[in-house]
Design a protein around this nucleic acid. Sequence first.
DNA 1: TATTGATGTAACAAAAATAGTTACATCTAG
DNA 2: CTAGATGTAACTATTTTTGTTACATCAATA
Lengths: 138, 138
Amino acid sequence: MINTRVAVAVHILALIASKPHDDLTSDYIASSVNTNPVVIRRLLGMLKKAELIQTTAGKAGASLTRDPADISLLDVFHAVEPKDNLFAVHGNPNPHCPVGKGIRRALDEAFGAAQDALERKLSSETIDGILHQLFDKA
Amino acid sequence: MINTRVAVAVHILALIASKPHDDLTSDYIASSVNTNPVVIRRLLGMLKKAELIQTTAGKAGASLTRDPADISLLDVFHAVEPKDNLFAVHGNPNPHCPVGKGIRRALDEAFGAAQDALERKLSSETIDGILHQLFDKA
DNA sequence: TATTGATGTAACAAAAATAGTTACATCTAG
DNA sequence: CTAGATGTAACTATTTTTGTTACATCAATA
């Protein structure tokens, strides 16, 4: 199972996008997410490093660097999940076994294709889409 | 990142499929995977519970319950990954916050669709496909 | 310009998930 | 009956994730 960082990061970005005029503090965000403010600030740091948001040290508030429609869940995923591969593969399979010898390559291909499918879908989903889910009357 | 169980389970099934005549012991499989035999036996237990393989207590060897072309990586994934949801979502977001109130549903939809995409791809990949990767001349 | 309240981060602690190990009951086959 | 295997529980170790404490630093303003 993938960690909650992606979910929390989307929550954070939805807050920022939906309250562009407020000065969102990490304390307020934390109370909405229901966690510790430092957890929020850590994620804000990652989102900033990924250039999805802007913040100023000492000053409350954060803003998106681009339109919510141009921030995909894949962007968020990559921002908070440093690992390249979705699936972990066991190390050092036995090279003297015909299966062990080639399994790494086979798994990398199969899992890579699956990850591609996931990422394609994630790249089609945006923060703007989340906002619509949250606020549009169906 | 998803645990190595899926990768190891595919490795195991590829071994079983490729050595239908040998009496594969958990010790041999462990030496190919490069781990402890008990780890293998645990996974064999899950694969058996998912009805992908058959084994006999006390007797070496395992066999697939159906053709390698009819065992998808999605079958394997579900066999060794009990959790339904690929993405974890933080619990108890604040219902008094407009975003916190609806975020769960929005995330479930977005992540659910992404998981669907992943699973569709995994269901199109089979143990037979892995065998071809391993043994076919390209 | 001193105070208040915020961010940024390091360091640590706690909790949860994963993987590895030991031990042993039980079964199969010779 | 014995040798060697599976099936599983219980424990340990490791790693990852999440939560917390502490504090340096910055911004705004009274």
